[in-house]
Design a binder for these strands. Structure first.
Lengths: 108, 108
DNA sequence: ACAAACCATAACCGTTTGGTTATGGTTTGT
DNA sequence: ACAAACCATAACCAAACGGTTATGGTTTGT
């Protein structure tokens, strides 16, 4: 499974409304566009286009079911961002390395 | 030390040129605007403004030394992004939880 | 069969963004 | 003292963004 363009991921999550949509899908599970529209506080077309952007970043998947479309979060698409932080965020790297070294001492 | 606005962090890192600047500072250490301009491939004023955006997100700090300004990466400002991923990225959370549970079994 | 519900796309609009050149202030080197 | 170097800010511009209303295509319910 080819990783999504990191650029797409970073760009998609730069907008607070899109982050909120992704968060909602992560917490509450799959939902229709209608439900997400009620949640988001912007118009339905706006939600649709935000979802399109998230989809291009592979952060969500959709499944058509009759007249409604169900969207679900695809959290493993965050991998490029995690990798980036892993690489360039010393704060994070430290925290991770500490655990990993413990892990290695545990299972040599 | 109050965490930077998560919005600022996400927005700042959404631009590839700004990410490149932050990466360069992370890898090579502090550098002047001049050096960063040679690296970035855009004009000096453009670099200056990108650095201002990164600074608002607290991702970089600057120190004036005579006529030059030295910028350095401030990786712990990535914390809001790490926290967010920790919360909403199942992929990531799994990886982390697995290590943490091992850690707990080690040090009860 | 028909009206209503659901969703995506189009068309439009003001604002933000990311780039440029121009300029000016401070500091350095000669 | 003066020219050059370094940097930030201003002014400007095209493109991208995020929102809206309008519209049309499917699907559902009566």
């Amino acid at each position: 499974m080819p990783q999504a363009n990191p650029n797409h991921v970073f760009r998609a999550l730069a907008d607070p409304t899109r982050r909120a949509l992704f968060e909602e899908l992560s917490r509450q599970g799959p939902q229709t566009v209608h439900a997400l529209t009620r949640y988001a506080g912007v118009s339905q077309p706006a939600v649709s286009r935000h979802l399109t952007v998230l989809k291009r970043a592979k952060l969500v998947r959709n499944r058509r079911a009759g007249r409604e479309t169900h969207y679900r979060a695809q959290p493993d698409a965050l991998a490029p961002m995690v990798d980036w932080l892993d690489h360039y965020g010393a704060f994070w790297r430290e925290r991770f390395d500490r655990l990993e070294s413990l892990l290695e001492r545990m299972e040599p």
